[in-house]
C-alpha cells in the first residue's frame, strides 16, 4: 500500500515502511523528479512561481507562498496515500520541512482523509523506541491483512 508519512521527508519512517513491503510516499522522490527536469533551472529544488500557485488547491491566496509551495508537493502525496503514519514532536534530524503552519495543515489533511492512520509521539527512551518500532510494524502488517 502507499503510505504517507509525517514528517514527509523522514528517512527512518520511509525505511520502516519499505522493509514491510509497502511504498513510502516521501518528499525526496518528488523533489528528485523536479531537480532532474532539464526544462527547469530554479535551484535548489527547481520550484518556480507556478508551484505556490498550484498550492492554492490546498491553501487560499492569503496563506504565505512558502506554505503553498510546500503543499504543492506534499498535497498530491496526501491525496495518493492509502494509509499514513504521523510522528509528533520529532526533532529536526528526524525529518522536517521547516514551517509549522505547513505541518499543521499536512497533519489535518492526513486525518481528514479517513485512511488507516497511526499517530505516534517521538520516543525519548530505548524502551519507548522499541515499542514504537513494534507499533509501526504491527500497523504496517495490519494494512497488508486489511488489503487482503
Amino acid at each position: 500500500m502507499k503510505v504517507a508519512i509525517f514528517p514527509p521527508n523522514s528517512l527512518i519512517l520511509a525505511d520502516l515502511i519499505e522493509r514491510r513491503g509497502h511504498k513510502a510516499l516521501v518528499l525526496q522522490n518528488e523533489i528528485r523528479k523536479k531537480v532532474k527536469d532539464p526544462e527547469i533551472d530554479s535551484p535548489p529544488f527547481n520550484l518556480t512561481e507556478e508551484d505556490p500557485i498550484k498550492g492554492l488547491k490546498y491553501a487560499a491566496i492569503e496563506v504565505p507562498s512558502g506554505v503553498r509551495g510546500r503543499m504543492s508537493i506534499f498535497g498530491p502525496l496526501i491525496e495518493e496515500a492509502e494509509a499514513a503514519i504521523i510522528m509528533d514532536e520529532a526533532p529536526f534530524g528526524f525529518g522536517c520541512i521547516g514551517c509549522a503552519r505547513t505541518n499543521e495543515l499536512c497533519v489535518f489533511y492526513l486525518r481528514k482523509r479517513g485512511i488507516p492512520t497511526l499517530e505516534l509521539k517521538y520516543p525519548k527512551t530505548k524502551d519507548e523506541t522499541t515499542e514504537l518500532v513494534n507499533k509501526i510494524n504491527t500497523f504496517l502488517d495490519s494494512l497488508e491483512e486489511n488489503n487482503g
Binding site: L47, P52, P64
Partner: peptide, 8 residues
C-alpha cells in the same frame, strides 16, 4: 525562510 519553496 521559505525562499526555496516559493520559487524565488
Amino acid at each position: 525562510c521559505g525562499t526555496e519553496y516559493s520559487g524565488v
